[in-house]
Design a binder for these strands. Structure first.
Lengths: 197, 197
DNA sequence: GTCTATATGTTGATAGAC
DNA sequence: GTCTATCAACATATAGAC
């Protein structure tokens, strides 16, 4: 077979697509979602501003690719958190902590999924990745709320609360990420054990 | 005395400063913080792009003015929420609900205070307005956590959780603002009554 | 698949007339 | 205090060469 990555004809590496995504993630992590511009990402990747258009239809398409990666990474992390215990309430607590940790450790992906402001309907693959993630969480919540709609409600409540702690950490209101994780976990525990039965 | 608002020499109303702030709030409410540009605010206010500079040093100064208004309005609303009951736990619950309601009803002010990304140190008046707000909340929390540091921690936790629900409403994850308010209040109740004593 | 060059639009900000 | 210029900077996106 031929080599998987042919020699670059221009003067670049074999995987510009990935290099652009990484640069974009850096930019978002540094300055928030609006800190990402295609032009600056090109500069960091060492290519001209025309190069991306062979890999992405436009600026939003790159963002959508990031958001999709973000959902997949969340599914991986939150799935692992859920699998780390059998106690349903503790599962929600660890999900909340993982939510905060993800926001801190992968701020670029985190903001790409939440604050990029994409027309989700224009990116079906993105909507599907989000739906897959939600399913994993809803499934876990079903142990606490057998009714599907109530399970979804619980996921939303726990996620919303955790999201707030994540936003506060990013904003620097919590000095310690660990502290914020613990608080988010605690809130999730209370919300999960709270009402119903 | 002379008339309070002299006749405009150009072709505009007597209170451009306010008109610009209102236009900016509209823009932020419509498209988020990055949806605000000085140029677009000028278009909506019906003045040239040079006009603002007689009223604000630069773009950030206008944003800072909005953020300051945002803190003051929060203090007004949250103060009223705290005063509406004597039960300390219920006070925190109503604060959380008011937080979500403020985000929904005054999204421009909400995002100006939280997501504008201002150098707070460059705007002392802004930092002071934020501090005043925090004091009101911390004071109320003292009934539940006599230790000042723990009281502050409780305020942060309740606010963080409420913030998440607010963000979820704005993002459209909660269809009903009322539902989100109720959930935020519930979470606040649990967090407040939760640990310590 | 990458480059150069370019078109086109937008922004923030300033100078100077009135 | 507002306007008319005008500027430099920067963005997204396309055409065409290699």
């Amino acid at each position: 077979m031929t080599e998987r990555k042919a020699r670059p004809t221009g003067r670049h590496h074999g995987d510009l697509r990935n290099a652009l995504e990484s640069a974009a993630l850096e930019l978002i992590a540094e300055n928030g979602p609006q800190g990402f511009t295609l032009a600056e990402a090109c500069r960091r990747a060492g290519v001209s501003v025309a190069a991306p258009y062979k890999h992405f239809a436009d600026r939003d398409a790159l963002l959508a690719a990031l958001a999709e990666r973000g959902y997949d990474e969340q599914r991986r992390r939150f799935g692992a958190a859920l699998a780390s215990t059998d106690d349903p309430v503790e599962q929600m607590a660890r999900f909340a902590a993982a939510y905060v940790r993800f926001a801190v450790e992968e701020r670029g992906l985190f903001e790409a999924t939440f604050s990029a402001g994409l027309d989700k309907s224009r990116y079906p693959a993105l909507a599907e990745a989000g739906a897959r993630l939600l399913l994993v969480l809803q499934d876990a919540a079903t142990q606490l709320r057998p009714d599907a709609k109530q399970a979804l409600g619980l996921v939303h409540a726990v996620a919303a609360s955790a999201h707030g702690f994540a936003a506060f950490v990013i904003e620097g209101i919590y000095a310690s990420a660990r502290e914020a994780e613990a608080q988010a976990a605690n809130a999730a525990r209370l919300i999960s054990a709270g009402q119903t039965g």
